[in-house]
């Protein structure tokens, strides 16, 4: 590079290339990412009595509510699983995705006061959100494991299988989609505030297009295609299938491959858009 020949460490020009991602820069700020994670984690439950227990109380109460409304009153199928376990498996996965998406989509707006003062790679913020939500997920996942073990020893129809080792992959795809879509939205919200409202209830509605409160096996025909078009579907289904064996007949590697491709595409588009916007968003926010 010409700039390196002259010994400059930094050259700033008004136009940047699309793929000028500066990942090296991001790597040198890895400590900052971890400190952001710590900040998010520590500050949320300061001055609460139950502290991090809230991470567990939330999904329990949600699962109980779902069991009563969707399970008992609406009599929706739970694929032969105990209601609580069925709903908790869906909620655990879904929470991670929706939290990642909701929080990353506010990156620019909620951090405008910091971004306006100091430069650091802006991508550190959404990445730290993904990571701190991962901790929340692990809390909720261990809750799910406890419930699973309880049913495993008291019942005979719970069949954990080798697909459960796909969990890390599922998490990566989940995080990737949440991050990708989140940064696309956050890049657009610097110009269009409308999207903040859309995303807030859009995520809620999307849950109903994901097999959280019903199993994929009960959806047939055109509707099934629609549900399968949702890249989160296969992730939630595979998770539930791996740990409980429910819906093993519906498993298809192609569904997972589709989710993976979806993730790759939104992630690339998202990071490029984010990179474009971060350079000048202070003038528009």
């Amino acid at each position: 590079m010409e700039s390196e020949k002259e010994g400059w460490t930094l050259v700033v020009k008004p136009q940047t290339k699309w793929f000028d991602l500066n990942l090296k820069d991001l790597w040198s700020y890895r400590d900052l990412i971890m400190l952001f994670v710590k900040r998010d984690f520590v500050s949320v439950y300061k001055q609460t009595i139950l502290g991090p227990l809230w991470y567990i109380i939330q999904p329990i109460l949600t699962a109980i509510t779902y069991s009563i409304i969707f399970g008992s009153m609406a009599q929706l199928s739970t694929a032969g699983l105990p209601k609580l376990l069925f709903y908790l498996s869906g909620i655990t996965m879904w929470n991670y995705f929706s939290e990642c998406l909701n929080k990353t989509s506010n990156t620019f707006i909620s951090n405008a006061h910091i971004f306006g003062k100091v430069y650091f790679p802006r991508l550190t913020v959404p990445l730290s959100i993904i990571l701190s939500n991962l901790f929340t997920f692990l809390f909720q996942f261990s809750l799910f494991l406890i419930l699973l073990l309880y049913y495993y020893f008291t019942r005979t129809d719970i069949h954990p299988n080798r697909y459960l080792f796909l969990l890390p992959l599922l998490i990566i795809i989940m995080a990737g989609i949440g991050l990708g879509v989140g940064v696309i939205i956050s890049s657009l919200t610097t110009k269009y505030r409308d999207l903040r409202f859309l995303i807030a209830f859009g995520v809620q509605l999307l849950m109903f297009a994901t097999p959280v409160i019903y199993p994929l096996s009960v959806v047939m025909g055109k509707k099934r295609l629609l549900i399968l078009a949702n890249p989160i579907t296969s992730l939630v289904e595979t998770f539930r299938m791996g740990f409980t064996g429910a819906g093993i007949d519906d498993f298809n590697w192609m569904y997972l491959a589709y989710s993976f491709c979806f993730m790759a595409i939104v992630l690339i588009i998202g990071v490029i858009m984010f990179n474009k916007v971060e350079k000048s968003f202070m003038d528009t926010v």
């Binding site: 050259v11 700033v12 008004p14 202070m282």
Partner: peptide, 14 residues
């Protein structure tokens, strides 16, 4: 301080 980019021109830093 790289909070925003210039509309025109370049700057170089060592």
């Amino acid at each position: 301080s790289r909070v925003t980019t210039p509309t025109k021109g370049t700057f170089k830093v060592r």
